[in-house]
Design a protein around this nucleic acid. Structure first.
Lengths: 125, 125
DNA sequence: TCTATTACTTACCTAAAGTATTGTAAGAGA
DNA sequence: TCTCTTACAATACTTTAGGTAAGTAATAGA
């Protein structure tokens, strides 16, 4: 039996699924894998997310120790988000999702030209 | 660029995240990894999900060719759900989530006795 | 003075998910 | 004959996650 913040889990996969039980958190992690990013960069790269939801989700990830938030006291404001050490360990999760996506498209979708992304290659730890 | 059912994706990870963008689908996959299951079994094992939501999510997964639904014309009724070949290929995704969960608990949670689950060992393909 | 910049906050609204209850077929047992 | 069972489907209602749109602070530059 596992306990995380008063919640009880029979299985470690439940711990992970409970954290990433929403629409956006894993996308945010994916975009932080290759580089630390400012709020605006993340918002541009994950263009479909709204500002409000991005703010909420970043705070949730911070409170769960998965990302780190650094504020630079400048004007205009500058806030940089980065993965913590446990956050960086999510790389295999995203990598396997990346690979599965390719297989799924090969069977049920179509590919048109080059894909404009790759598995981030920095911060490998 | 990838296309799946009229949707456009820059990256294969987006394809995966778009399918599993809710609270329950990956849990269902997890419980189907070791064995095919009947509706009632799934409902008992994923006890927090409601009947209605389980029905809806199973239909969504079926329509995306990730699970297969087989109806046996018996009384009382019997319906068995199983992973398709692309569904079975989600194993590495769940395995990496399983492993990450253990690491997360080691850092930010507590472990009490034995965990009552393990990575399913059947149907490996 | 006016506009641009960044990282938010606030108020309101909509859609997805959850709760609760009822209905169905068809055989088994009382 | 009547009730119980399984595996759902269907309906109505409530809750919550996420979306829309506007506002704010503080400074730099035109």
């Amino acid at each position: 039996m596992y306990f995380v913040n008063d919640k009880e889990f029979k299985c470690s996969v439940g711990v992970t699924l409970d954290i990433f039980n929403d629409k956006w958190k894993l996308s945010i992690i994916w975009h932080l894998l290759d580089n630390d990013k400012r709020f605006k960069q993340l918002h541009e790269e994950i263009s479909e997310i709204t500002q409000k939801t991005l703010t909420v989700k970043l705070r949730e990830l911070e409170s769960k120790n998965i990302i780190h938030r650094e504020v630079f006291p400048e004007v205009p404001p500058k806030v940089v988000y980065s993965l913590t050490s446990i956050g960086k360990k999510l790389r295999p999760v995203l990598e396997s999702m990346f690979n599965w996506g390719i297989e799924y498209v090969q069977e049920f979708g179509t590919i048109n030209g080059e894909s404009s992304c790759e598995i981030g290659s920095f911060n490998k730890e």
